[in-house]
């Protein structure tokens, strides 16, 4: 295909991506370097019958004029990144100096909004991903041994948790796990604690969001592994049987190595997607116990005052996080490409 033809074919999609993905990326980086203007203060001497006194008031028109003239705000360099709402360098240094134990240090750090969100986001990402892969693998192995007619049915129901809107799915689970819901009732009956409530306990909240994550994404792993099992060569399996491998050894030494590339694929996709965890926090109304990076951005953008600069800064930090997670894939793709050409 000629360069020219390629250009015209690719133009619409390229333009859409440049305008609505690449340009906003540049924009959030720029915005994160600026902070909103502070109000302009004027000091006027107010003289009355009881003498004069100085008063400082906000000069509304001057403030408006300044905001109009420089809508980006004032340039502050990296200071938004370092403030308390983000990397909180001063607070971390202070905590490091004053804390007597590592535990106390992490306790202090955990109270800073950014690190709190980061802690949950990373926990969610790295706990959910392996567990959902394991669950998906076992479902795939079990379903594969079912009768052909049943497989379709099981796949149909298995797809539901994955296909359903994340917010809707998390609400459905939340209403059941809620202390008034059927599972919440069951739990408090089993634990023999009538006051057991999800809303009051951070560990319970974390666990249930992670369970939601596994419930939501295990079907994806299942479907991919199941498809992989269909392409498994029969002769290696038979050879293993002739050599006297037990059922478990067949799975361990024949099936798992065959599925390994798919495991990597699922792991990378899921790391990427779990890192953006957001909807379950809204669905479970978990703000008090668990926040994520995406949730912070959402929270800064919504509400009465839109803190664009703060949101942009968290956005940039999130993108950096994604880039770190993605780097192994990029390196691998680059090697493949090098190998081919």
């Amino acid at each position: 295909m000629k360069h020219r033809t390629f250009f015209w074919f690719f133009l619409p999609t390229g333009l859409a991506m440049i305008l609505f993905i690449a340009a906003p990326l540049v924009s959030i980086i720029t915005q994160s370097l600026f902070a909103p203007h502070e109000a302009v203060f004027v000091t006027v001497e107010n003289c009355g019958p009881f003498g004069c006194k100085e008063e400082t008031t906000i000069d509304q028109s001057a403030t408006a004029a300044l905001r109009e003239a420089e809508p980006m705000g004032r340039f502050v360099g990296l200071s938004v990144y370092l403030d308390r709402g983000h990397l909180a360098v001063a607070e971390v240094a202070e905590a490091w100096r004053t804390s007597e134990s590592i535990g106390e240090f992490f306790g202090t750090i955990y109270n800073l909004p950014f690190y709190r969100a980061l802690a949950f986001t990373l926990t969610y990402t790295f706990v959910c991903t392996p567990l959902l892969i394991i669950l998906g693998f076992f479902i795939a192995i079990s379903v594969n041994s079912l009768h052909r007619h049943l497989k379709g049915l099981v796949i149909f129901f298995s797809l539901l948790p994955m296909i359903v809107t994340p917010l809707v799915g998390s609400l459905i689970l939340f209403w059941m796990i809620d202390s008034r819901g059927v599972l919440g009732n069951l739990l408090s009956y089993l634990a023999d604690d009538p006051d057991l409530s999800l809303k009051a306990s951070s560990p319970l909240m974390w666990t249930s969001i992670i369970i939601y994550g596994i419930w939501n994404s295990a079907p994806f792993a299942f479907v991919v592994f199941y498809a992989g099992l269909q392409t498994q060569p029969k002769d290696t399996l038979e050879a293993a049987q002739i050599d006297g491998a037990t059922r478990w050894q067949q799975i361990r030494f024949v099936t798992i190595p065959h599925l390994m590339p798919l495991v990597t694929f699922v792991a990378l996709i899921q790391l990427m997607d779990n890192f953006r965890v957001f909807e379950p926090i809204v669905g479970f109304s978990a703000q008090a116990h668990a926040t994520s990076l995406s949730w912070i951005i959402f929270n800064d953008l919504g509400g009465e005052t839109q803190q664009l600069s703060a949101a942009a800064t968290t956005s940039v930090l999130t993108v950096i996080g994604v880039a770190i997670l993605l780097s192994p894939v990029l390196v691998r793709t680059w090697r493949d490409f090098k190998g081919r050409s």
Binding site: M1, H3, F6, F10, G14, M17, F20, I21, A22, A23, P24, L25, V26, S27, I28, Q31, P71, M272, F275, R276, F278, S294, I297, F298, D300, L301, Q306, L308, A311, A312, S315, V316, T318, V319, V322, A323, L325, L326, V329, L330, T333, W334, F337, S341
Partner: peptide
């Protein structure tokens, strides 16, 4: 078959990985 195809696909992969909500503060202004 040109080389830029690879780079375009890589760019698309990176764009796919970026959580959409991070772009919102770029859209709003």
């Amino acid at each position: 078959g040109f080389k830029y195809v690879f780079w375009l696909l890589i760019a698309a992969l990176i764009f796919r990985a970026i959580p959409p909500i991070t772009l919102v503060s770029g859209y709003l202004p």
